[in-house]
Each structure stands twice: as structure tokens, then as C-alpha cells.
Amino acid sequence: MTTADAALATPLPAERAWLIVVRRLLADPLGTLGLTIVVLLVISALSADWLATHDPFELAPRQRMQDPSPDHWLGTDQLGRDVFSRVIYGGRIALWVSLTAVSLSLFGGLVLGMLAGYGPRWLDNALVLLFDSVRSFPTIMFALAMVTLLGPSLGTIITVIVVASIPVYGRIVRIQTLSLKETEFVLAERALGAGPIRVLFSHILPNVIGPLLILASMEIPVVITIEAGLSFLGLGVRPPTPTWGSILQEGYQYIRDTPWLVIAGGLPLILTTLGFTFLGEALRDAFDPKLNRP
């Protein structure tokens, strides 16, 4: 054995890749900030039932548009509902919609992308054509059409987002699959008797999933913004479901009476977007082997 070989062969302390990633993440101040915001959001969404001071659906028209007070921390809206409680529950919905939509589109993108990349040529051509046609259609126009057809609801929003973002993931997975398919280790696996399913799930999937998860964490704020945008246009979640977008929209209608409604709906939206973006970027850096940091 050469000395280099021997040095490398000496077992290093057992370190898991994710430990390195977490250490790198915490070394990045923006990454730490992002992680903190995301963790706080998750906690507040999970414990909305305890955090909320009022029933977010309880109407009291005569107590409408009150200024912030010890009883109503962010005041009340045009129907006398407690805005703070609605914001807390809005976070739960934002998180739920974005996680559902992102995981569904991630799954769809993975399956279709791997099919396109590993399957027969005609299937690849058909799927690429499908991806391109969906992408060439502006998301908001697509959303308008879907809402007209299905009516506004959480389900419609998630459908719109999933259909619109499957191509984003699908294209990345396809490209990766195409290049992985040609690698020697896939050939080696096939030479040792692995079939397409085994190659895809045991070998290509683990190589694709990492970058895809980073992309997904960057997509979450995009999804939250799309949901808020649709709700702001009145095409989103059905009233009286509290979402940040609908709080923002109602706030805008009464901005001259209750300016804090716009802030109450807008600020969490901005913070969440920043949080996930910081986290996603820090994760991307942390996973990037080319950035050789401790």
C-alpha cells in the first residue's frame, strides 16, 4: 500500500454528512436567522390552538375595526374578528399549503423526471413537451382558469401550484437522470444485474434527492407568495378561512380605517419568505462540496 492509500484507509471518526451540514449552516448568520424564523413559524403553526387568543372565526360585527389593545393584540377586522388569532392560523394554512404543494410537486417531478430521463425516447419527448407547454403558460393565467373551472378553494390552489411546479422539478430530475444514467456506477450496477426499478430507486434517486430538497426549501416561500397573491386577488382560499393573503386583501380594502391589517397580513409573509430563502441559500452552500469550509 502507498502511504497516501494507507492514510485514507485509516478510519476517520464516524461523521454523518448531515452533521457537517448543520455545523456549516449554524456558522452562517443568515442561515441561522432563516432557521430560527422557520422553526418559530412551525412552532406557532403547530401550537396555533394554544397561541391564538380568540376563535379566529368568531364574528362580532359591532366590535369591528378596533385598534390594537390588550384584548385584541392586533385589533379586529371588518367583521370584528381577532386579527392576531387570524394571523396565527393563517401561518398554519400557509405552511400546510406550501408543504403539501411542494411535496406533491416534488414527488410528481421526481416520478415524471426519472421516467423522462430513464424511459424510452418517445416518452422523454412527450414529457419534455408537456413540461415546456405547462411552463410556457403564465401561472396566474392558469390559476384564473382553474379557479373559474373549479371555484376558489385550498384544493384548487394546491392543484394549480402542483401542476405549475412539477415541470420545474421534473426538468431538473430529468437532466440529472440523463447524466447519471451514463455514469459508470449505473452501468456497473446494471452489469451486476440491477433492473431499471432498482437502478432508479437505489442509485439515481439518492443522487437526485439532495439538490431537489434544497430547491424545494427555496420553493416554499414562492408557494406561500402564490397562495397569498391568489387570496389577495380573491381567487384563493374561501372566506372565512384566515390566510395571510386574505388578511392582506381585506386590510387593503379598509386601509384608510385599519392600516395595521395590511401590516398584520404582510409582515409574516415577508418574514417567512425571507426565512425560507435564507435557509435555502444557506443549505445550498452547506451542501456544496466545492465550498470547502469547516
Binding site: 459508470e184 456506477f185 452501468l187 456497473a188 450496477e189 437505489s202 442509485h203 439518492p206 443522487n207
Partner: peptide, 10 residues
């Protein structure tokens, strides 16, 4: 090529 014939993430 032994550098590429093993799957790097498994």
C-alpha cells in the same frame, strides 16, 4: 474507472 463505478451517495 474506480472513481466513478461506485455510487457516491450510498
Amino acid at each position: 474507472d474506480p472513481m466513478t463505478s461506485l455510487n457516491p451517495v450510498i
